[in-house]
Design a protein around this nucleic acid. Structure first.
Lengths: 208, 208, 208, 208
DNA sequence: ACCTAAGCGAGACGGTACGTCCCGTCTTCTG
DNA sequence: CAGAAGACGGGACGTACCGTCTCGCTTAGGT
């Protein structure tokens, strides 16, 4: 039968607490007891939902990422790209989400469970990006034979690189550079600034 | 004052055991006791050498590959780029060196000391890459007004992205794609005058 | 105002299950959840009847003992004594009731609630024994100045001793020995040669 | 090889703490964590010595009184009996020794190993009691055809009964009653030299 | 014949203790 | 003195179970 339903407040409190603890102390440094305490919830209530600490963190991370995930469609390719990169930067910049993401990335490198869960997350983000590419192709803004997966990499990689490897904030100019480079490399020349549309693809003159 | 010197056999046994344990069970799954047991060594003997489990693994990794730091100069731009990326991949792929690198990356995100040390390390690699670019410019293979720093990012970022974010091994084809893209975007047309080829994507026949 | 009355089937199922669980695993080893499961009843249904686990066990034990409790009156002292001891032995021999009794005895040694409840139980049995003694005194079979309480002890103690301390089954001969000893010590010489009682071990009445 | 030996201070501290905690809160009320805290010792250090809480208490009790096992010989039957019973009472009265004994008794009822060990223990005590009886017979204080085993039961049973069944402390008067009853039942009238008593064994010549 | 108070199954919940595990340190003895 | 052996403090883990609490649903009895 039904039984008492799980409290949505608990759900929420647990995930919030888990995210904070994780961001603050990392996977090894955090403790489930601390999460329980911070959430004002008993340990059993956590373990009823998540079979282990990693699952808990995975859940929390999923939630955090899921929240800032909306479909992207500004109408133009450059606008979409700019929005994708800006959102990504914003995520990594956020002291909480960013820290959680970095830790997740690191932990996923040696924890198979987290790795899988992280892969799903990334997969969903990439799907949205691919959708953007597809629309741009349909609009004639991107080359129709574009390698979608590779393009995803090329687009997002520099942002991650700057954050994870160089530990520097990404500027608007930097994003613009990426967009420029991406469009220059994979875009279709919008020849006359006047004719916005329907011009047949003439020979794109590459800047030498 | 001298006393008994540390046993080189122990050094070696510890490293080997740590490597095996790490490979078999990962950072969390392994235990220092197990490493000690496998090495036929007491825990104290390990802790006399490495202050913590992570240092043990990282240290083992570092020592396990005291190399791969040489100047790059194959004579051609594509060859150099290929070598740079291959070396990078090889580093990250190695279960131990890779793990150590990732750990360093992560820790540097909140530890200023480590961050500086890591920056130096990265800086040196980037210098070598910039040198490669410079030579290519001199040879007329790259555009002379190239943004060297950004080019560094664009070149290496996908490799890190694949490893850190996607947790997937980088294939030779993938590296070739990066090189292709890089040359297509920033290279100077090495036209055999016949192939005027205005398509951006057309991949020039790879040498060798 | 009335509401649905409590189910007698539940009452029964709960007590049976509790007794079995208690006999099998003891006070600490058993769990209310297990009792509920075995009884095919929900925990709330148990807690509606008994405020705590101990009360539950106490209730179950009471039931078990109450069942085999009937007044004793065979007409003769020896017959009554024999019946009392035989009943006692039978109780302890029963794999379920006996185990429960032993555990109750043990648990009562550190649990005040159980101790009290057990005391009541024992008290009722002793009352019946005292009644037997009283009738025997009235019939002139026992010394009129008999210390009733102490006599209760002396009569029953060896049975418990054999079971609890020696962990051996009590034989009919053993019971006969107890009865003999008891009558020899506290009985009044039944001079009439008629009642020589061809008891197995005819005890010569010794004068003290 | 040898390794660091277990700390005797820890041994002691644990025992003392367990004793105090047990006395203060009982078996259920006490917690191993509390014992550890009071002993200034980690839980692991306790569990390295005792596999469970019960074993801890029982073990502590057992060690706490590695004595009270001495031969009994006061010179007179009544004195010996009194000493035997008093010692027994003292053992059961002690909050720890008594608890341990009861636990052992209980566990032995379903655990063959413990049962054997307990039997040995009881056997040794009974041997000492039998020796007392034998000397008394030799001195002409007890009937020579005494059923030694049954006499052991009859003598000790009431003490156990009072403790295990009635959960009441045994008073000096009670012990006196037992001794009185025992002597009255199995003793040889020594009193008046007039009653020459045709007992075969008049002047028992004690050996040695 | 309906209404309604209570019983009931199911199971979530806050606590608390359990016994296990492992890290990094400390202590003892042996070679 | 290095090293093997292993005890130790600390502290988190995940489990178990108590007694309480919601849920819906069922079931009499009183009106």
């Amino acid at each position: 039968m039904a039984g008492r339903p799980r409290s949505a407040e608990c759900d929420r409190a647990i995930l919030d607490a888990a995210l904070s603890e994780y961001a603050a102390r990392g996977l090894d440094g955090m403790s489930v007891d601390a999460v329980a305490a911070r959430a004002g919830v008993s340990k059993a209530t956590i373990y009823r939902r998540y079979p282990s600490k990693v699952e808990l963190v995975a859940g929390a991370a999923t939630m955090a990422c899921e929240e800032s995930a909306s479909d992207v469609d500004t109408g133009s390719l450059r606008g979409d790209l700019r929005l994708i990169l800006t959102t990504l930067r914003q995520n990594l910049d956020d002291p909480l989400v960013g820290a959680a993401k970095r830790k997740l990335l690191f932990d996923a490198s040696y924890n198979e469970e987290l790795a899988q869960m992280h892969k799903d997350l990334v997969g969903r983000r990439r799907e949205r990006t691919v959708a953007v590419f597809q629309r741009a192709i349909d609009r004639g803004e991107l080359q129709p034979d574009l390698d979608l997966e590779f393009a995803c990499d090329v687009l997002g990689a520099p942002i991650f690189y700057r954050d994870l490897v160089m530990h520097e904030r990404v500027s608007d100019e930097y994003i613009e550079k990426i967009v420029d480079g991406f469009v220059a490399r994979y875009g279709v020349l919008q020849t006359s600034p006047i004719e916005t549309e329907m011009t047949t693809v003439s020979t794109p003159a590459r800047p030498s």
